[in-house]
C-alpha cells in the first residue's frame, strides 16, 4: 500500500512536470512576448524590463528558473495587475471554485447514486422511464444552457413569490451557492445515474442478494447493506475524472452566475493574455486534478478490499 502510494505520487509529480513543461513551451510559442503592449516601449526601457523579468536570458535558462520557482510553489507576478502575485490570485479565488466544485460533486454523487439505484429497482417501470428520460436530457443539454435557464427560472421564481431568498448571481452566503452548484453538478449526476443503474442491475439478482432474501433479511437492509455497497464501487472509480470535469466545467457557471472563482479569472486572464496567470492557473489546476485522481484511487483501494493496489 505504502509502496503503491509512493509510486503513484512520484508518477503524479512527473505528470505535473509534464504539464508545466507543456504549458511553458506552449506559452513561449505564442508570437510576441509579454512586453508587447499597445504602448510602444523605447529600446532602453524594453531592455531594462527584459533584464528585470529575465526575458533576455536563453530559453533553457528561463525554463530552469521557471521550474525552480515552481518547485518552491512560486508562480510569479501578474502582468496585467501590478504587483499582484499569481499565488495571491489563486489563494483568493480558488477556495470559491473549490467550494462550488465540492458542493456540485456531493450533489452529483448523492443524486446519481440514489436515482441510479431507484431506476434499477423500478426497472422498466414508470419511475425508471421518467428518470432515464431526464438523465438523457441532462446529458444532452449543454451546461451553459442549463445555467442560463436556471438563472432565468430563478428570476421568475423570485418574481412569482415576491422574495429574493435565492439570489440570481454573486457569491457570499449559502443561498448563493445552491443553484450554481446544482447546475454544475447536473450533467455529472446524469452520467453517474446511468452508471449506477447499470452496475445496480448486475447486482439486483446476484447470488448473495438471493441468499440474503432467502435468509429473510428485510428488503431495506438488503438494499443498504448488500446492493448499494457493491453497486457503488464503479461510481467511485469515475469520481476522480469527474471532479476534473466539474472543476473545469465551473468556468461557465462562474461566468453566468458572476461568481468570483478561479475559472472566471482564468478566462479573463486568457482574454487579457496575462501570461503568468495563465501558466500558473494551468499548472495549479493540472496538479490539483492529478492528485485528486490519485486520492480517489487510494480511497477506492480502502473501500474495496478486493482491489489489490500494486
Amino acid at each position: 500500500m505504502l509502496q503503491y502510494t509512493v509510486k503513484r505520487l512520484i508518477l503524479g509529480i512527473i505528470t505535473v512536470w509534464f504539464i508545466a513543461t507543456a504549458t511553458f513551451f506552449g506559452m513561449h510559442a505564442v508570437p510576441g512576448d509579454p512586453l508587447t503592449t499597445d504602448k510602444a516601449l523605447s529600446p532602453t526601457i524594453r531592455k531594462n524590463l527584459e533584464e528585470k523579468y529575465g526575458l533576455d536570458k536563453p530559453l533553457v535558462t528561463q525554463y530552469g528558473i521557471y521550474l525552480a520557482n515552481l518547485a518552491r510553489g512560486d508562480f510569479g507576478i501578474s502582468f496585467t495587475q501590478e504587483n499582484r502575485e499569481v499565488n495571491d490570485i489563486i489563494a483568493e479565488h480558488f477556495p470559491v471554485s473549490a467550494t462550488l466544485g465540492i458542493l456540485a460533486v456531493i450533489f452529483a454523487a448523492v443524486g446519481g447514486v440514489l436515482w441510479g439505484a431507484l431506476t434499477a429497482l423500478y426497472r422498466n417501470r414508470l419511475p425508471d422511464t421518467i428518470i432515464m428520460f431526464l438523465v438523457i436530457l441532462g446529458i444532452s443539454v449543454p451546461s451553459f444552457v442549463v445555467a442560463a435557464l436556471g438563472q432565468l427560472s430563478l428570476v421568475n421564481l423570485n418574481q412569482i413569490t415576491g422574495t429574493s431568498i435565492l439570489p440570481v448571481g454573486g457569491w457570499g452566503t449559502v443561498w448563493h451557492m445552491i443553484v450554481p452548484s446544482l447546475v454544475l453538478g447536473l450533467s455529472t449526476m446524469a452520467y453517474l445515474t446511468r452508471l449506477m443503474r447499470s452496475s445496480m442491475l448486475e447486482i439486483v439478482n446476484a447470488d448473495f442478494v438471493r441468499t440474503a432474501k432467502a435468509k429473510g433479511v428485510p428488503a431495506t437492509q438488503i438494499f443498504s447493506r448488500h446492493q448499494l455497497r457493491n453497486a457503488i464501487l464503479p461510481v467511485i472509480t469515475v469520481l476522480g475524472p469527474q471532479i476534473a470535469i466539474i472543476t473545469t466545467g465551473g468556468f461557465v457557471v462562474e461566468i453566468i452566475f458572476a461568481i468570483p472563482g478561479l475559472g472566471r479569472y482564468f478566462v479573463q486572464a486568457v482574454q487579457q493574455l496575462d501570461y503568468t496567470v495563465i501558466m500558473g492557473t494551468t499548472v495549479f489546476y493540472g496538479a490539483f486534478l492529478v492528485f485528486m485522481v490519485i486520492l480517489v484511487d487510494l480511497i477506492y483501494g480502502l473501500i474495496d478490499p478486493r482491489v489489490r493496489l500494486e
Binding site: A22, M27, G249, I278, T281, T282
Partner: peptide
C-alpha cells in the same frame, strides 16, 4: 499517453487557442 490524458482538457484547449490563433 498517460501524461497527455492528465493534461486538464479545457484549460489546454484554451491555451492552444491562444497559441495558434493569435492572428
Amino acid at each position: 499517453a498517460d501524461f497527455v490524458v492528465a493534461l486538464p482538457f479545457l484549460l489546454f484547449m484554451i491555451l492552444f487557442k491562444v497559441i495558434f490563433s493569435i492572428s
